[in-house]
Simulated assay, not measured.
Amino acid sequence: MATENEKITPKSSLRENVEAILIAIVLALFIRTFVVQAFKIPSGSMKETLKIGDHILVNKFIYGIKVPFTDMTLVPVSNPERGDIVVFKFPEDPDKDFIKRVVGVEGDTIEIRNKHLFVNGAPVDYKQAIFTDPVAIPKGVQPRDNFGPITVLPNSLFVMGDNRDHSYDSRFWGFVDLKAVKGKAFIIYWSWDKENFGVRWSRIGDFLK
């Protein structure tokens, strides 16, 4: 039996609650920084793969552990591959996050001929890609439908939106530095249709391909 000097003083309810909140905050920050982060899709550049109002989770660990608040990779794990859907800091405004599909990695030669994508001279057709404008814009006018050939620089990616006729991507502003990549999008956890004011239940839980 404990003596009077050995009696354990119970923590106050306030202290317990404060400690629980602090632990929860630390865990949330750790998960958000190193493991998984949530993003909301604001535009239609990745339709129909991702629609406006989709909420997604991004795996931040898959490409390596970064030093918090920097672009420095502390523990490299892997690099993005062709076909991955990645979130990255927009090269023209690093305060903004963009999401696109990787179509070219370091050393690849990228060319677009009349809307058709060629990688290293071979045609590549992503089933997720959609085209809504039947007109093919000449190369001298803008690079949307006729582009390249161009070789992807070291430690860089060439990315495009699945909504090919309505995506502001590498065709217009160039490569994505690997250091700017935040992670790989892998699942839709919520989807809100603002126009019809309703939940897209069928999209919740969809794994991204």
Rank of each mutant, 00 (worst) to 15 (best):
G121V: 11
I8P: 07
T151M: 03
F39M: 07
F172N: 02
W192Q: 09
I52R: 08
V58E: 03
F158K: 05
F118H: 08
V18F: 15
K184H: 06
R200W: 12
L157T: 01
T73D: 13
M72A: 08
N146H: 15
A28G: 09
R200A: 12
W201T: 13
F90Y: 03
E195Q: 14
T132L: 12
N155I: 04
S43W: 01
T33F: 11
D206Q: 13
D162Y: 05
K115V: 14
G53I: 07
V199M: 11
D177H: 05
D84E: 12
P42S: 01
F186P: 02
E106R: 08
D54K: 11
D93Q: 10
P42G: 02
M160K: 05
V35S: 00
P91L: 04
I137F: 10
R32N: 15
K139Y: 13
T70D: 12
M72R: 06
K182G: 00
L50N: 01
A122H: 14
L27K: 09
L29N: 06
S13Y: 12
N120G: 00
K182Y: 04
A180S: 12
I110S: 02
D95A: 01
V135G: 10
R113H: 04
F118T: 07
I99K: 05
F69S: 07
W192Y: 15
Y126I: 07
P42L: 00
Y63R: 06
I62W: 02
M46P: 02
H166T: 01
S45P: 02
F69M: 09
P149F: 02
V75P: 08
K100D: 04
V35I: 06
P134A: 07
K115M: 13
K66A: 05
R82L: 08
P68I: 11
G174R: 01
S13C: 10
K40L: 09
Y63A: 09
P68G: 11
L117C: 06
V124H: 06
K11I: 09
Q142C: 03
K60T: 02
E111M: 03
E92N: 05
V36A: 13
N146A: 14
R15D: 14
N17R: 12
L27N: 06
